[in-house]
Design a protein around this nucleic acid. Structure first.
Length: 365
DNA sequence: GCCCAGGCCAGTT
DNA sequence: AACTGGCATGGG
């Protein structure tokens, strides 16, 4: 460990703000920040998948892969024409480079060590599902085309699908970290968890983080999550999340009669987090997790008010887009951020990649 | 100091 | 069932 400034104590555990600066956020003073050089694990090109978009309706590759409203995690990076993303497939860490040619998504796969046929099949299913490549989109497009408040969003984003490269556990953790904090705090907690328990990989010229599995974090005591990772009251919840998703496979969850109710048995999962899991990982188009952020956006766009009660907003959303509240909310929120994205596209070219990689590799463990 | 963030829970009416 | 205070933390 390199120490640039004074002693590093247990009370000085946060990761640096180097990548935060890269991602465009304001900087806090970093006088005593500890900086480590971390060697990412190199993944090799092992496969190429060609995935046709089989669902009907238009397909918008850029805005399916990249969502302007999503905060930076280091798990993915995007340029105008190409995206990189990590996936956990069982215990494997997989790097994927995505681009689209018309209605075919081409996924170059990078792994360390053996990549079995079963892994290939699982990743194929995962990619198709994560980006909704087999989902019909025409019905929503038709419905939305008749709602004036949606017209502009549909014109610019049409063909965008819900994206959720996260599995149920991963998206549940994201939603947990969003609870009752600013995005700045969410990003801080995400950086801490991924730096401390995730993986750093390098493939196709880019360095990215990868998630931890439930097994890899289930043993971490709440005190550590609170004091070292700055999770606040969420520190008590994360171990419950890890245990639940360790013990309930994706197949179990799909078989659950009512997923929204089922996951609320987890301590720290309420209506909002359950709806995020359902609408994202389970891709339920009618589910929408309403929070103080999207509530205000939807109040302006659907009710011509600066804010409104959540029930009022949900009633309006459901009456305008029956069966598609989640999809409609997605379009309106992404449109809100399109001209001023939370995490911008990477410029194409070696300089931008070099800066990106350096920021991730200097962030502490 | 006080208030608010991309909520949830346990304890009261 | 519907309210309420407390929970952690950091920025404005």
């Amino acid at each position: 460990m390199k120490r640039f400034f004074g002693p590093v104590t247990m009370a000085d555990p946060q990761v640096s703000d180097a990548e935060h600066e890269l991602f465009g956020g304001p900087l806090r003073p970093t006088a005593a920040t500890q900086e480590h050089d971390v060697n990412p694990r190199t993944l090799d090109h092992t496969d190429t998948l060609e995935l046709p978009v089989t669902g009907d309706g238009p397909f918008n590759a850029l805005h399916t892969f990249w969502k302007p409203s999503h905060y930076a995690t280091g798990l993915e990076a995007h340029t105008e024409s190409c995206s990189w993303r990590t996936f956990r497939v069982g215990d494997l860490v997989v790097g994927v480079r995505l681009h689209a040619e018309d209605r075919t998504v081409i996924a170059d796969i990078y792994t360390a060590g053996d990549f079995k046929p079963a892994d290939r099949e699982e990743l194929t299913r995962r990619l198709i599902s994560s980006y909704g490549l087999d989902e019909d989109h025409a019905a929503f497009a038709e419905l939305a085309s008749h709602v004036p408040a949606m017209r502009e969003a549909l014109a610019v984003l049409g063909g965008m699908r819900q994206s959720c490269p996260e599995d149920h556990f991963e998206i549940a953790v994201i939603a947990l970290l969003l609870q009752n904090v600013t995005i700045r705090r969410t990003a801080q907690m995400t950086r801490n968890l991924l730096a401390h328990y995730g993986h750093l990989v390098h493939f196709d010229g880019i360095t990215l983080r990868a998630w931890f599995t439930p097994d890899e974090i289930a043993h971490v005591p709440p005190e550590t999550l609170k004091e070292r990772d700055r999770l606040g009251f969420r520190a008590k919840s994360l171990p419950h999340y890890a245990a639940y998703f360790r013990d309930h496979s994706t197949e179990d969850l799909k078989a659950a009669g009512n997923l929204m109710e089922a996951v609320q048995e987890i301590k720290g999962v309420g209506p909002y987090t359950a709806a995020v899991i359902a609408s994202h990982a389970s891709r339920a188009p009618a589910a929408f997790g309403i929070d103080v952020w999207n509530r205000k956006i939807l109040a302006r766009r659907l009710l011509d008010a600066n804010d409104a009660a959540p029930e009022t907003v949900m009633t309006r959303l459901n009456e305008l887009f029956p069966g598609y509240a989640g999809t409609a909310g997605l379009y309106l929120v992404e449109h809100e951020y399109l001209t001023n994205p939370v995490a911008s596209l990477l410029r194409s070219g070696p300089d931008a990649l070099t800066a990106w990689n350096a920021a991730l590799e200097q962030t502490g463990t």
